[in-house]
């Protein structure tokens, strides 16, 4: 009996390790195998050949341009918004907090319908724009607006949380030392949040680049005007299979690069903490 107990504990440990190993392997394979399957379905020659397809180039350029514009707008408007939102109390702040998070849980297609109901040709505001000859829905502008709607919460949440975490003592000290509020913002607050803001911006870029549902509902699917990479994948899979596959590989590579960038930024933050 004296030998049995330790051996039983050892066996239990081995079984626990084996169970954990199987679980980790199963989850990893479940997430990784589909990605691998995309890469294995096409030869490198075919991939580089399809990359020169006008539909691929057009979707790639449109996606890049619209996503970069989206990112610039989100950072330029979102940073001061998050700063003021975290620094001041105002009536309805809780409601604004909820509304910021809403696009995260709202199905993207519903977001597209909502944008269409507001800015569409007969929409709440769209009818007035239409009266003066401005059409928003089904244009490149609509692509950007849809991306901003679904992707901005990633940046706003991150920026808001960063500004809330900064000890007010830093800004107060800066002011007593003779710095104006603007100088304090640019020399103290923003540098102390830069890594986190970049991380939020990278996630926003990734979400905007992959946006599909809201875009197809609000901007449509016109090659060269509103057909972004995810939409081109959808069309490609119904027609030219290799176009869909090639763009999918591009999106996987970009997404992977985004995740590596975020990890590197987080690692840098940890080292400086």
């Amino acid at each position: 009996m004296t030998f049995w107990k330790p051996r039983s504990v050892q066996l239990k440990k081995k079984l626990a390790f084996a169970g954990a190993g199987i679980l980790i392997a199963a989850v990893t394979l479940y997430l990784f195998l589909p990605i691998l399957a995309v890469f294995l379905r096409i030869t490198p020659e075919r991939f580089f050949q399809t990359l020169q397809d006008p539909n691929v180039i057009s979707a790639l350029w449109l996606s890049m341009i619209t996503t970069i514009i989206t990112l610039i707008i989100v950072v330029a408007v979102g940073t001061p918004f998050a700063y003021f939102h975290s620094r001041y109390s105002y009536p309805g702040k809780v409601i604004v907090d909820t509304l910021i998070d809403l696009p995260l849980v709202l199905p993207p297609a519903v977001a597209g319908v909502a944008l269409l109901m507001l800015y569409g040709r007969v929409g709440l505001l769209g009818k007035y724009f239409n009266m003066v000859g401005i059409q928003i829905a089904f244009t490149t502008l609509a692509v950007i607006m849809a991306q901003i709607f679904v992707a901005s919460p990633f940046y706003l949440r991150q920026a808001k949380s960063l500004f809330e975490q900064i000890d007010p003592a830093y800004e107060q000290t800066s002011r007593t030392l003779g710095a104006s509020p603007v100088r304090t913002l640019f020399l103290v607050t923003l540098p102390m949040t830069t890594s986190g803001l970049i991380s939020g911006a990278v996630m926003t870029f990734g979400r905007a680049l992959g946006e599909f549902g809201a875009t197809i509902m609000f901007a449509g699917n016109v090659p060269g005007t509103t057909q972004t990479m995810p939409l081109a994948v959808y069309v490609g899979m119904q027609g030219d299979f290799y176009v869909g596959l090639t763009i999918s590989i591009l999106l996987v590579i970009i997404s992977f690069a985004i995740m590596i960038a975020v990890r590197l930024i987080q690692k840098r933050e940890e080292q400086h903490a």
């Binding site: 830093y170 107060q172 000290t173 002011r175 007593t176 030392l177 003779g178 104006s180």
Partner: peptide, 29 residues
């Protein structure tokens, strides 16, 4: 205004700006 009062204020957590060097901190004001 706060910035014009010429009052040196040292807080409990010292609030030295972590992204600046010691020299830059002293020169800040």
């Amino acid at each position: 205004a706060v910035e014009d009062r010429k009052i040196g204020y040292v807080l409990q957590n010292s609030a030295v700006f972590p992204h600046m060097s010691v020299k830059e901190n002293v020169a800040y004001g």
